[in-house]
Design a protein around this nucleic acid. Structure first.
Length: 719
DNA sequence: CACCGATAGTCCGCCCGCAACCT
DNA sequence: CAGGTTGCGGGCGGACTATCGGT
């Protein structure tokens, strides 16, 4: 399903007109209600009927499961099977939706929950109390302890306080005199109360929420039902910028309908805002994909309500993104040749540009736009400063390195020591110059705009970010191709896939904080692994006991696992004994409880004694076996049977250790981001088909919904 | 003893929110 | 700028685990 007629130049700006008439006509008759039958080869209907109806006559014994009918009756629009038409500037013909959902109004705190000022409770009007609440409820987080956050919060709170002062006229002038602890306590109480709601209450609350949200969840785009993404208007709160953002803690205001612009089809009913007021503006712009927009007050950014990731509009542009990245294959050799050449250019701007391109290509750095004073200080390739790169030469082998150390997007640290060619090394030394300071731009003659413009000269639509997609997917494809998985278990296959995913995530610097419980989890897992190895050891010993000559014949089994030290074995067995005894005690108590309930005579203490003696005998036996290299099993088994058991145990150990290692390797790597944004899903689909792995194992529900267009890729498909 | 099913408690992966990028 | 895509963290719900009783 290659889309190869993509780059046929259809640059006539007004190409939208012809197809409009056809669709429009159908529209009028149908009120836009019924899904438009796809003009060409839609097999969707047929597919549905086949599984939809037949499963209905359930067995009479089965309780009629509350007809979860809405399951999948919707006809799916397979846009990727349509012929590409138009230039993409027009995004829709008709659009019907319910607007946006506003957050509930502020509920004032109970009278006994107060901010204290100078030790005395403040009686605040709701407007200023709400702002205090935003701060109080996060009092136990790092944000509340951050000076910038405090400063910005307090400044904005004072502004609100001016309009809505404390009822007794108290002047709030010092942050340090404020005590928000009652607010936090109230927050915790609320949280507990919510947690402790009964099942029914929780269910009722959930249903009420769903009912409320239902109209907003979907819209009608060209008559088809499509999922809407972020239909909830962002609630007011204190701005949580990432890293050292100068505006963190500032008050993000509550929005009214007047702040919102609605984009909707012409001639369809405009939804009413769910709160008092009128929409700021209503427009009918079918060249854009947003349903609503507003301007956020803290940074002045424009926010939008878009369709969900699984929608046709998002899917189409997502697929185009990957097609564009695949296009780059055709040009990349020329581009590389040119920048290699330009690394030596006499023209400084060219030389810098070539070096920047080299980093973007090889390291998958982001473009790196200029940023303002009012934003966190983060950089990408073009905005690197001299302080972010250092040069190193290995004195023993003369190899040369550039060490990158800077804060990138989301203030995530990028640290990388990269071996470079003599030319790149020389260039960086040159760019860092003698007359530059640490704060000066490394590439003072390159901007993202100029670099992108240069890239466009090779390929239409080529920009720096395309290299990231290209790099990620190419790397992924190459790593997967390098593994012959014939005869491998599913667990092994998945491990190889995850490893390739991991390599890409590392390339793209997708990090995450290690899970808080990681160390504890790893400790548990390795104990479990040791226990498995212990069991294997016992099986081996048993084998040699049954058939001593095997010790010579099977050196692989005779070799002792050095991880299982004598101390560990002793500790482990003692612990197991303790647990077994404890269990025997419990069982004894339980048995008696039951007998008592039945009015029968309780077991005598001697029974417990016997049982414990049996346990002790078993572990005494193990204790005697320690260090002897011999063992007897609970049940007698033939040598052959034991060997089978060992094989099984080996498989179990192997699978388990693969999983354990993979988890450890991935503790600070975020795999999701590349999977969602950078890896062409068709690579995964093809790989799954090639190695007979269900695609559901590699894609979770939302990825499956996001990538329907990729599912048709066959086993031979390559990026 | 193996296996199943129920239950409660824990954990971890998924989804969402929205910030931070790019062009 | 407007209009998108990319990205992390946090909260939540569902899966998993431990335990127990019953067959």
């Amino acid at each position: 399903m290659d889309v190869d007629d993509e780059d046929k130049p259809k640059k006539k700006k007004k190409a939208a007109a012809p197809r409009k008439s056809r669709v429009k006509k159908e529209e009028d008759g149908e009120d836009g209600e019924t899904p438009k039958k796809a003009p060409r080869k839609s097999k969707a209907k047929k597919d549905k009927e086949e599984d939809g109806t037949t499963s209905a006559p359930a067995s009479p014994t089965k309780k009629g499961k509350k007809a979860k009918k809405e399951e999948e009756e919707e006809e799916v629009f397979k846009w990727w099977e349509q012929d590409v038409e138009g230039d993409g500037s027009q995004k829709w013909q008709t659009l019907v939706h319910s607007g946006v959902l506003f957050p509930p109004p502020y509920e004032p705190l109970p009278k006994n929950v107060r901010v204290l000022y100078d030790g005395k409770p403040l009686d605040l009007p709701p407007e200023s109390e709400e702002v205090a609440w935003f701060f109080g409820k996060i009092l136990d987080t790092d944000h509340a302890k951050d000076p910038t956050f405090q400063k910005n919060f307090f400044k904005d709170w004072q502004k609100i306080l001016k309009e809505h002062p404390p009822r007794d006229g108290t002047r709030v002038t010092s942050f340090d005199k404020c005590d928000f602890r009652q607010l936090l306590a109230h927050h915790e109480t609320q949280r507990d109360a919510k947690k402790n709601m009964s099942q029914e209450e929780k269910k009722a609350a959930k249903e009420a929420k769903e009912k409320l949200e239902l109209p907003f969840r979907t819209c009608l785009l060209d008559g088809r039902k499509e999922k809407v993404g972020n239909f909830r208007i962002e609630p007011p709160d204190l701005f949580r910028g990432r890293g050292e953002h100068p505006k963190k803690g500032a008050l993000k205001l509550r929005l009214s309908p007047e702040d919102i612009t609605i984009n909707i089809g012409e001639g369809v009913p405009v939804p009413e805002p769910g709160v008092p007021g009128k929409w700021g503006k209503v427009v009918h712009d079918n060249t854009v994909t947003w349903l609503a927009t507003w301007k956020e007050n803290v940074n002045g950014n424009t926010k939008y309500v878009f369709l969900a990731a699984g929608s046709s509009l998002k899917g189409q542009s997502d697929m185009q993104k990957f097609e564009k990245a695949r296009d780059l294959k055709k040009y990349v050799d020329a581009i590389r040749g040119d920048y290699e050449r330009d690394l030596k250019s006499k023209i400084m701007a060219e030389r810098q540009r070539a070096t920047a391109m080299y980093f973007i290509d090889v390291l998958a750095l982001r473009a790196g736009n200029e940023k303002g004073e009012e934003e966190a200080d983060t950089v990408g390739c073009c905005s690197l400063r001299c302080e972010h790169v250092t040069l190193e030469r290995d004195t023993t082998d003369g190899r040369e390195y550039v060490v990158f150390d800077f804060l990138g997007k989301d203030s995530i640290r990028y640290y990388n020591r990269v071996e470079v060619s003599a030319q790149v090394f020389k260039n960086i030394r040159l760019f860092k110059g003698d007359n530059k300071t640490d704060e000066d731009a490394l590439f003072d003659r390159v901007s993202t705009t100029s670099l992108n413009k240069h890239l466009q000269s090779y390929m239409k639509g080529l920009t720096a970010k395309v290299f990231r997609t290209f790099n990620a997917s190419t790397t992924f494809q190459r790593l997967l191709d390098a593994e012959d998985l014939e005869g491998a278990s599913v667990a092994e296959k998945i491990a190889k896939y995850t490893e390739a995913n991991r390599q890409v995530a590392i390339l793209c610097n997708h990090q995450r904080a290690a899970p808080k419980t990681h160390d504890a989890t790893m400790a548990k897992l390795s104990e479990k692994l040791k226990a498995m190895k212990y069991d294997r050891m016992k099986l081996c010993h048993a084998l040699f006991t049954v058939e001593p000559k095997k010790r010579k014949q099977r050196p692989d089994l005779a070799k002792e696992d050095e991880e299982l030290t004598a101390e560990w074995i002793a500790e482990y067995e003692d612990e197991q004994r303790r647990l077994a005894l404890e269990k025997a005690e419990k069982k004894f108590a339980k048995d008696n409880e039951k007998l008592a309930a039945e009015g029968k005579e309780e077991l005598k203490e001697s029974v417990l004694k016997e049982r414990k003696a049996a346990v002790n005998a078993e572990y005494d036996k193990l204790k005697h076996e320690r260090g002897t290299g011999k063992a007897t099993l609970k049940q007698n088994k033939s040598a052959e049977q034991i060997e089978t058991l060992i094989e099984k145990q080996d498989a179990k150990i192997k699978t388990f250790s693969i999983q354990t290692k993979s988890r450890d390797d991935t503790k600070t790597v975020a795999l999701g981001t590349s999977k969602i944004n950078y890896l062409d899903p068709r690579i995964t689909v093809a790989w799954c088909k090639k190695w007979d792995v269900p695609v559901e194992k590699m894609f979770n529900k939302s990825l499956l919904v996001k990538f329907p267009w990729a599912m048709g890729a066959d086993a031979e498909w390559v990026f």
